[in-house]
Each structure stands twice: as C-alpha cells, then as structure tokens.
C-alpha cells in the first residue's frame, strides 16, 4: 500500500489544452485513472468509481488520490503578464519519479549531458551554494547556485555565468529559477511536474514561464525538450531503479547538497513511492 503521505499530494495528469473528451486512461501511484476533458464545465478524473479532486493550474490538470492538507503550490513569479508560458509536452520515462526530480536538481552533469549548452568540460566546477529545508512552507530550497553556461537559454547571446535557485514544493515537482538574459533582475522559471505512474515509470510534464519576446513558441518548446531528452537517456540507465534513501548506497559530494536534502526530506515525510529504503 502506497504511503498515505504520497497519496495525499497533488500530481499533474494532463495538459488543459489537450484533454480528451472520450477519456484517456493512465496510472497514478500504480492505480488506474481516467482523465476526461469536458465541453462545458470542469474536466474530471475518475478512479475506482469515484471522481477525484481536480485543480487547473500552470496549463495542466492536477489531481490527488487522497486528501491533501494544503492547496497545490503556487509560483507567483509565473503570473507576470509579460511572461511567455510554455507547455513543453509530456515525455514518458522508464525511471522512478523521484530520480526524475533529483536529476533536475543537479548541475554537475551539465558539462557531460548538456555539453556546449548548459555546461562545458572546461568549466566543470560546482562552487559552494546554499541549501535548506524551509520549515515554514515545508519545501526544499537551494540558492546561490552558479554555473558557467555556453548557451543558457534560447534568449542568451553567448556564454554567461548563470545563477540558479531550486525549489521542491511537492514530492514529485521541482521548479528552477535561472538568470533571465533579457531581464537580469528577473528569473526565468522552468518547472518539472512529474506524474508517478508506477515506482519505475513516470510521465514528465515540463512547463516554463519565461521572459522572451524574440523566440517563437516552437523554438522554446524544442529547446526544453532537447534538454530533457538528453537527461532521459541518463535516467533510464540508473541502477537501482528506485531512488536509494539509505545514505550508504550511493556516494554524494558537496556538489550534491540539494539532492541530499531532497532525499532527507522525502524520508522525513514518508514520500517513498519510487524509493528504496535499504540496500537490496
């Protein structure tokens, strides 16, 4: 039985612009669900004969199998009217939903996985940054993350040192805030909303809210799909499949402070769907 804490969280299950009126079958935490768009009225998610609670936010439809004790998180920066909101499109990955989130929190892989775009082998060093679990909102935050990037965004002219912040507001969601080349006082917002289908299969729904008046929407979508698909080839080849929460199993370094905090936070809350607790 999936830990209740995980059932009580909100998860993305569809793009509002593409919901099927006939209904589309899917899985959530191993349980069968059906997602239906509606001509009039709200979309529905059904499971096991009952209608689940739904929320429409960030261009996606969200639902829960349980009884969340808080509303779905917000991203206030994303509401700015001048931003371009981008539905990147779902990608299925044969990995644990927790591994998908953890990869998104990592910068040390940029020179090797996103070579000449988000990182370069000539600049691999990850300098000290700050990580905390903010108890007031119960979220994991990493700040003052810096990395040299040959092509940080579609809107970037050349190589720049990018500043990042990472935020984990829910067990399978992560948001990153990064230097916005056209508006240096603002952050570009890139989010990964992960739908856990089973413990080793997930649907990833990336989403962005950017300041970019120049690039065509399709180019923005493709840039983010390119980055995510580069990660996918890593995610499908990590062993063990389930994220080890036992610290003895894998060897982190100081560059991995965010992932260490994320794993600690998952364990604390019993968010263990897609995790393994002891070495098997």
């Amino acid at each position: 039985m999936t830990a209740q804490a995980m059932r009580d969280a909100w998860y993305p299950v569809g793009l509002l612009s593409q919901l099927s009126f006939e209904g589309k079958d899917s899985l959530l935490l191993g349980q069968k669900i059906t997602i239906c768009g509606a001509e009039t009225g709200a979309p529905r998610v059904e499971s096991d004969g009952r209608n689940l609670p739904v929320v429409e936010r960030f261009g996606h439809l969200w639902t829960t199998l349980g009884a969340p004790n808080k509303d779905l998180f917000t991203i206030p920066e994303a509401d700015h009217p001048d931003r371009t909101r981008v539905d990147v499109g779902v990608v299925r990955v044969k990995c644990s939903p927790l591994r998908a989130v953890e990869n998104f929190l990592d910068v040390a892989h940029f020179p090797f996985v996103h070579t000449d775009i988000l990182g370069a082998e000539s600049h691999p060093e990850v300098s000290e940054y700050k990580v905390e679990i903010r108890d007031d909102v119960d979220e994991v935050w990493a700040t003052k993350v810096e990395f040299f990037q040959p092509q940080a965004a579609k809107s970037a002219g050349g190589g720049i040192t990018t500043e990042y912040m990472y935020r984990v507001p829910a067990p399978t969601c992560s948001i990153l805030y990064k230097t916005c080349p056209p508006r240096p006082d603002e952050w570009d917002v890139i989010a990964l909303f992960v739908q856990p289908l089973t413990e080793d299969l997930c649907d990833v729904w990336p989403w962005m809210a950017l300041f970019d008046d120049e690039s065509a929407m399709t180019d923005l979508i493709h840039f983010q799909q390119l980055i995510f698909l580069q990660d996918r080839s890593i995610l499908e080849n990590q062993i063990p499949k389930r994220l080890p929460l036992d610290p003895a199993m894998e060897t982190p370094t100081r560059a991995d402070l965010t992932s260490i905090a994320y794993r600690r936070w998952l364990k604390r809350h019993n968010y263990t769907f897609g995790a393994q607790l002891v070495a098997e």
């Binding site: 953890e102 040390a108 892989h109 020179p111 090797f112 996985v113 082998e121 691999p124 080839s233 890593i234 080849n237 990590q238 062993i239 063990p240 080890p244 894998e250 060897t251 982190p252 370094t253 560059a255």
Partner: peptide, 27 residues
Amino acid sequence: GDRCPHRGMRLSHGFVRGETLSCIYHG
C-alpha cells in the same frame, strides 16, 4: 561493475580516455 558509485549510472555508457574510464553522467 556496470554502475558508478555516485548515482548509479551505467559505466558502460561512459567513455575511455588513456588508461581511465569516465562516467557519462558527471564525468
């Protein structure tokens, strides 16, 4: 073993330089 002790990435996806084997995930 076909597993990097860092985050479990398969080392068989890596690359060889000189007398060393590097993991493709974090190098």
